[in-house]
Amino acid sequence: MVEVKPNHLIKVKRNQVFAFTMLSLAAALTVLILLAIVIYVMSQGLSVISMEFLLDSPKSMGAEGGIYPAIVGTIYLVGLVILIAAPIGVGTAIYLNEYMPDGRFKSVLRFATELLAAIPSIVHGMFGFLFFVIALGDYTGGWSILSGALTGVVMILPIIIRASEEALRSVSNNLKEGSLALGTTRWYTIKKIVLPLAIPGITTSIILAIGRVIGETAAFLLTLGGSLLLATTVFDGARTLALHLYLVAMETGNTEMAFGTGAVLIVLILIINLAATGLFKLLVRRFSA
C-alpha cells in the first residue's frame, strides 16, 4: 500500500474547505447583489407610489405627476409584440423541428436565429428607426407604438423560437411515431399530441419574452418617440415604463420619481417570473392529470 502522509491529507482537506467557502461566498454575493438592488429600489420607490402616481399624467417632463401614459404604453407595446411574435416564433419552431429535414438550409436558419439573438438591442433600435420609423413611416406613423412593436418583434423572435424548439424537442418521439403510425398527417399529430405537450414550455417562453419587452429600453428609445401623451392608437408615439425611467433620470435628474417607476417595474418582473414558473407547473399538471 502507498503510504499517505497525514500532513498531506490535512492539507487536501484544508484546501477543500477553503475552496468551498469561496464558492459559497460567490453565490452569497450574487444573491446579496440582487437583494441590495431590489430592496434599495423598492425602499426608494414605494414612498412615491400611490393611486395618483399610477393614474395621473406626468407633469414637467415626468419630474412630477404620475406614470399613467407609460403604463398604457407598456401594455400596448407588450400586447402588440406578443400578438405578432408569438405565432411567428412558435410557427418557426414547429417548422424547424417537425418539418424541415436536416441540412445546410436548416443550419443557415439556426445560425441566423442565433445571430439575431446576439445583435445588441441598440442595433435593433437603429434598424427599427431606419426601416419602420423612416422608410415605412407613412404606414407606421413614424415614431409610434407600431414601429416600436415591430422592432421588438425582431428582437424577441429568437428567444421565442429557441425556447419553443426546446419545448417541442422534449416531446417524446415515441408518441409522435405512435400518432403517425395510425395514419394521421403530421399537422394532425402536431395539433393533437406535440403542441399540447409542448404548451407549458412555450407559454413560459412567451411570458419570459414579455419580461424582456418590459425591460428593454435601447431599442425603444430610437423607435417609440418617447411621447408623454396618452397613446390612443398604435400609430401614436409613446413611452414604456423603462423608457420613462431612463428619460426621467437622465433628463430631469429627479431620481425619486425614477425610483417610483423602477419599483413598479420590479414588481412587474417579480409577477412575471412567478407567473412563468407557476403557470408552467399548472399546465404540466393539467395535461398529465
Binding site: S172, E177, S179, L182
Partner: peptide, 26 residues
C-alpha cells in the same frame, strides 16, 4: 398506407390523454 398497416411499438406509447380518447384517436 399507415391506415392499412398499423404498428405496435416496443415500448407502450399511450398518449397522455384518456383511455377513450386514445382508442378514438385514429
Amino acid at each position: 398506407l399507415r391506415k392499412s398497416v398499423g404498428t405496435v411499438f416496443q415500448k407502450p406509447n399511450p398518449f397522455p390523454i384518456s383511455i377513450f380518447d386514445n382508442v378514438a384517436y385514429g
